[in-house]
């Protein structure tokens, strides 16, 4: 239990006594993900690791707060604390009640969610929307906290989905909001490299980790993501990777490094086109090429 010792040491400064840490774990449990379809045991393995990690977070300090969300393609939900009343838990074989409650609630709500979402499975997980919900939740926690208490909030995203440039706009909105409100976004990529989410980690000061080995999920979570951001500076963590800051073009949602930007609305296109599809502005052609232009309203 090295983590607890570490925490105590850093707690010696007096100011941290009324600081609490709010962790929102977003687990991409979309059954459409490639690595979950290959092997059904993987989901249970990931879930157990996340529950153990969540409990480790609660164990660090009595005031620590936790929320766990599940992300799918048609819905996203809080699976802890779930909707409705907390489940009534009695102590079983000496386990601390809260831990039992976390485990039971998460498993109960997730199985309900998975059971309701079997009709047609879509592969895209709408992670940006889930982060947006998490940010609203964090904003409420900041509003209702008792005066004098400081809440440090962070979001940990655990996903095996691929990057989707179609969510580009939503991703950018949530990244900038998180940055503005000092919410750190950490990403643990289980299966594929995620360049957009990596940008989010860079913007908000979080950590990005592409898991080398799925078997070791819990170990990586505990080593890399359990320490709070201020403590991380003292640890030797995976070195920061160079972030790819290319833009996604509006026409094909593909990442490009040279593009054309509409002077009116700043939309990005990968090729020259005579009309902006975003604001319907007609552009002056660079060459003598006479293209029949659609009569669009040029003026307001």
């Amino acid at each position: 239990m090295n983590n607890i010792v570490l925490k105590r040491e850093s707690n010696t400064d007096f100011s941290s006594t009324d600081e609490t840490s709010l962790l929102v774990v977003i687990f991409d449990s979309n059954p459409g993900q490639q690595f979950l379809r290959d092997n059904t045991h993987v989901l249970t393995h990931c879930l157990d690791s996340i529950i153990a990690f969540s409990n480790a977070h609660l164990m660090q300090k009595a005031q620590n707060k936790l929320a766990v969300m599940a992300c799918h393609s048609k819905t996203s939900q809080f699976i802890f604390p779930g909707p409705g009343k907390p489940i009534d838990i009695r102590q079983t074989d000496g386990q601390y009640e809260i831990f039992t409650m976390v485990e039971k609630t998460i498993k109960h709500n997730l199985s309900k969610l998975l059971g309701s979402d079997i009709s047609n499975i879509l592969t895209e997980s709408l992670l940006a929307g889930t982060i947006a919900m998490a940010l609203c939740y964090i904003a409420r926690m900041q509003r209702i906290k008792s005066p004098g208490i400081k809440i440090n909030s962070r979001i940990l995203l655990v996903t095996g989905s691929s990057d989707s440039a179609s969510q580009y706009m939503n991703y950018m909105n949530v990244f900038f909001t998180a940055q503005k409100h000092n919410v750190v976004i950490d990403v643990c990529a289980l299966d594929q490299h995620l360049s957009l989410l990596q940008q989010g980690c860079d913007i908000t000061g979080g950590l990005y980790l592409k898991l080398p080995q799925l078997q070791g999920l819990l170990q990586y979570l505990l080593w890399v993501f359990l320490p709070e951001p201020p403590i991380r500076e003292k640890l030797v963590l995976p070195p920061p990777v160079k972030v790819d800051y290319r833009a996604a073009c509006f026409c094909h949602r593909e990442l490009i490094d040279i593009g054309f930007v509409c002077s009116v609305c700043l939309s990005i296109f990968c090729k020259f086109s005579p009309i902006c599809t975003t604001c319907h502005t007609v552009f002056k052609m660079p060459g003598p090429l006479a293209v029949k232009q659609k009569k669009k309203k040029l003026k307001l």
Binding site: Y245, G259, V261, C262, S263, I268, F283, K284
Partner: peptide
């Protein structure tokens, strides 16, 4: 206001 498409580069770190 005239409008035009402006060619721009999005550099990424090497």
């Amino acid at each position: 206001l005239d409008s035009s498409l402006i060619k721009m580069g999005f550099p990424h770190q090497m």
